[in-house]
Design a protein around this nucleic acid. Structure first.
Length: 598
RNA sequence: GGGGCGGUAGUUAAGUUGGUUAUAACGCUUGCCUGUCACGCAAGAGGCCGCGGGUUCGAGUCCCGUCCGCCCCGCCA
C-alpha cells in the first residue's frame, strides 16, 4: 500500500470538488460497460462512485475488479454529468474520476451477499451469517448498530464523569456466589480443585468500593451467567454498573433520567420528557400483568375475581376458592378473530401454565357470544360490562388461575393484541421506574425464601421491624425492598437498589435466606467483615447496555448489537467455541472430564 | 428439561397424491457492450436435497432417530 487515504468514501461530497483524493475500501458493485467501468466503493461511512475512463485506466485492468476486493483509488472529484446524480447516495452528486488504481487484496466469492437490496428476497440464514460474522459486520445495518452502541457508551462515560463518578475496574476472576444464576467457573492451576467464577455482576465489589470511600463508581462491566438464552439474553453481556454513597432513590432516578434524556438526544435527536413515571410493582402487576409493562400499549387488565365467584362456572369456583384470581383483557375486535385463531388461544395460554382460557365476544351490551356465556346471568353480565373499557364489538379474554399464571398469560396476550389491533404506539418511548418490589420470593420446591433482587437489598424502612423480628411466611412475603427497575417500552433496561449498610440487617438477611452462620461466613465472610468498619449508606443501578442499544437501534435481538454474539446454545459459530482442550491442559488444571450422562 | 418453526446449487426460494435428467432468480465463469448506479445482452459451470436408519419396485417428498439454527416456557438473585 503506497498511498495515504485522504477521506472516507461516504464523506466524499461536494466539498472535495476538483480536488485530488485517495479512497480505500471494498468494491460494493462493479458495472463494466466495455469501455467505461464504474465501481461503487464502500467503507464504514458509505459509498462513493468511482469512474474508470479507458483513457486513464485500461479496461483490462478496471474490468477485472470483483465484489469485495479491497482497492485504493486515486483521482479527481468531479460533478456528475447533468441528470446523472444518484439521489439515494449522500455522495450522489459527485464521482471520483480515477487516475490510479491499486488492488490491495482480492476476495473469494462470498458465502452470502453484502447487499440487502438484491433481488434475492428473504434474509440469509442466521447460522451462515454467524459462521461468517466478520462478513455480516461489513453490512451497513450492523455497522450502524455498533455505532449507536458506541454512542451510548460514550455518552454514559462522559455523563458519569461530569457527575463525579470514577471508572473503576473490578476482577473478572472472582469468587463463586451461591444464589442467583449458574456461574461460569475457571479452574485454578495453582490451587488444585479450586475455582474462580466469572462475575454475574460486580455487586459486592462495587459495594466494597463504597466502603472503600470511593464515593461514586461506574464501570462498563462484562457479566456472565450460565443460563439458557433468549433473544434479549446472552451468556455474557454488558452493563453500565453504578454505585453511589450518601444517596436515596430520588438521586438515582433523577440522575438516570438525565442520562437517558441525553442518550436519546445524542443518538436520535429526540427530547425525552422527565421525570419518568414511577409505578409501584403491585400496580404494574395489577394493570399490566408484568413488572416491565410496555406503556406504549393502552390496554389494561381488569380484575374480575369477585364477579367470577358469583358466576356458575365450576372451573372458576374451584380455582378462586384456592387463592386464584380471575382477570380479563378486553379490546375492540377490529378484525374478527377466526375460529382457528380462537382455538389457538388455549394452546398459548397453556404454555404459561394456564389450564384454559375463556373468550367472550360482546356484540352489544348483554349480547354475549361465548361457549361460557351461560354461566353468567344478566345482572352479572351488566356488572362485568361496567368494569370493561369496551362494551360493543369487544373481545374479552379471561384467565382464572394462580396470580402468576393469570398475569403472565394475559400480560402476553396484552402485548400481542395491543400490537395487532393498534393499541400500541411504537413511535413513542415510554420510560417508567417500577418501585416497591417485594424483598423476597418464596420457592415452593426448596421451601425457603430467595432474594427477589439480591441479598444486599435494603428492606423498606416501614417493613424493617417485621423483617428483623418475624419469621412468619405471610409477614416476610409482605416486606418491600428499596429496589427499582428502569423499564423502557416493555423492556427491563436497568435495575438497582439501596443496599443494606447495617451489618445486623445483613446478618438477618442471610438468616432468612437459610444460611447458617458458617455458610454466610464461608461465602460472604469478607463482605460481612467489611460492613463492620464504617459503611456509608449507598445504592446503585446497573443498566443493560445490550438491551438499550437494541432499543436505540430498533432491533429485536441483542445479537444485532453485539459484534460477536453466541447462539442459543451459548456457542460461537465462528470460532467454534467452546471446544475440547489438550489432555495436557486438563492435567495442569487437575481436571478429569467425565462422559456426559446418557 | 419442555413446546413450536426451520435446514434443497455459493445465496434466497419453488418442488403437487412418493414416479423420467431436482427448478427459478441473484451470485460465479467466459464473451460482447463508453454513463451506469439492482447496468444490459449471450453462453456456461455449479447439488451428500443437514446427517443416520427404516418403509417402498422407487424417497427431496412418508416414518423413526439425531445434529444444528431461531422463537417461547422453565431458568435468568
Amino acid at each position: 500500500m503506497n498511498w495515504k487515504r485522504t477521506t472516507y468514501c461516504g464523506k466524499m461530497t461536494n466539498q472535495f470538488l476538483g480536488k485530488e483524493v485517495t479512497l480505500m475500501g471494498w468494491v460494493d458493485r462493479y458495472r463494466d460497460h466495455g469501455g467505461v467501468v464504474f465501481i461503487d466503493l464502500r467503507d464504514r461511512e458509505g459509498i462513493a462512485q468511482v469512474v474508470f475512463d479507458p483513457k486513464n485506466i485500461p479496461v483490462d485492468v478496471a474490468g477485472t475488479l470483483r465484489q469485495e476486493w479491497v482497492v485504493a483509488v486515486k483521482g479527481i472529484v468531479r460533478k456528475r454529468p447533468e441528470g446523472m446524480s444518484n439521489k439515494n447516495l449522500p455522495t450522489g452528486d459527485v464521482e471520483l474520476e480515477a487516475t490510479g488504481l491499486e488492488v490491495l487484496t482480492r476476495a473469494e466469492t462470498l458465502p452470502f451477499t453484502m447487499h440487502t437490496d438484491s433481488p434475492t428476497t428473504g434474509e440469509v440464514d442466521e447460522q451462515l451469517r454467524g459462521r461468517y460474522r466478520y462478513l455480516e459486520l461489513r453490512r451497513p445495518k450492523l455497522q450502524k448498530n455498533l455505532q449507536i452502541r458506541h454512542e451510548f457508551l460514550r455518552t454514559a462515560r462522559e455523563f458519569y464523569s461530569e457527575n463525579g463518578f470514577w471508572e473503576i475496574e473490578t476482577p473478572i476472576l472472582y469468587k463463586s456466589t451461591p444464589e442467583g444464576a449458574r456461574d461460569y467457573l475457571v479452574p485454578s492451576r495453582v490451587h488444585p480443585g479450586q475455582f474462580f467464577a466469572l462475575p454475574q455482576s460486580p455487586q459486592t465489589l462495587k459495594q466494597l468500593c463504597m466502603i472503600g470511600g470511593l464515593d461514586r463508581y461506574m464501570q462498563v462491566a462484562r457479566c456472565f451467567r450460565d443460563e439458557d438464552l433468549r433473544a434479549d439474553r446472552q451468556p455474557e453481556f454488558t452493563q453500565v454498573d453504578v454505585e453511589m454513597s450518601f444517596i436515596d432513590e430520588e438521586d438515582i432516578y433523577q440522575l438516570h433520567e438525565q442520562l437517558m434524556a441525553r442518550v436519546f438526544k445524542n443518538t436520535h435527536g429526540i427530547e425525552i420528557k422527565t421525570p419518568f413515571r414511577r409505578m409501584p410493582y403491585d400496580e404494574a402487576m395489577r394493570k399490566y400483568g408484568s413488572d416491565k409493562p410496555d406503556l406504549r400499549n393502552s390496554l389494561e387488565l381488569v380484575d374480575l375475581t369477585d364477579q367470577g365467584k358469583r358466576s356458575s362456572f365450576q372451573v372458576y369456583q374451584s380455582a378462586l376458592s384456592s387463592g386464584g384470581i380471575l382477570k380479563a383483557l378486553c379490546f375492540e375486535e377490529k378484525e374478527t378473530l377466526s375460529r382457528s385463531e380462537l382455538d389457538e388461544l388455549p394452546k398459548k395460554a397453556a404454555s404459561f401454565g394456564a389450564k384454559g382460557i375463556t373468550w367472550i365476544r360482546i356484540k352489544s351490551p348483554g349480547d354475549w357470544q361465548s361457549p361460557q356465556a351461560k354461566f353468567f346471568d344478566a345482572a352479572l353480565k351488566t356488572e362485568i360490562e361496567t368494569k370493561l373499557p369496551f362494551k360493543k364489538q369487544a373481545m374479552v379474554l379471561l384467565v382464572c388461575s394462580t396470580p402468576n399464571i393469570v398475569n403472565n398469560t394475559l400480560g402476553s396476550f396484552r402485548l400481542d393484541f395491543g400490537k395487532r389491533f393498534g393499541y400500541t404506539d411504537e413511535s413513542r418511548h415510554e420510560f417508567a421506574w417500577i418501585t416497591d418490589f417485594p424483598l423476597f420470593e418464596y420457592n415452593e420446591e426448596d421451601k425457603r425464601f430467595f432474594a427477589a433482587h439480591h441479598p444486599f437489598t435494603c428492606p423498606n424502612p416501614t417493613d424493617l421491624a417485621m423483617f428483623m423480628k418475624s419469621s412468619a411466611k405471610a409477614d416476610l412475603e409482605k416486606v418491600r425492598a428499596r429496589a427499582y427497575d428502569l423499564v423502557l417500552n416493555g423492556s427491563e433496561i436497568g435495575g438497582g437498589s439501596l443496599r443494606i449498610y447495617d451489618p445486623n440487617v445483613q446478618k438477618r438477611m442471610f438468616e432468612i435466606l437459610g444460611f447458617s452462620e458458617e455458610d454466610a461466613k464461608a461465602k460472604f465472610g469478607f463482605f460481612l467483615n467489611a460492613l463492620q468498619y464504617g459503611t456509608p449508606p449507598h445504592g446503585g443501578i446497573a443498566l443493560g447496555v445490550d438491551r438499550i442499544a437494541m432499543i436505540l437501534s430498533g432491533c429485536d435481538a441483542i445479537r444485532d448489537v453485539i459484534a460477536f454474539p453466541k447462539t442459543q446454545k451459548a456457542a460461537d459459530l465462528m470460532s467454534e467455541a467452546p471446544s475440547q482442550v489438550d489432555e495436557k491442559q486438563l492435567q495442569e488444571l487437575h481436571i478429569r472430564v467425565l462422559p456426559p450422562k446418557l
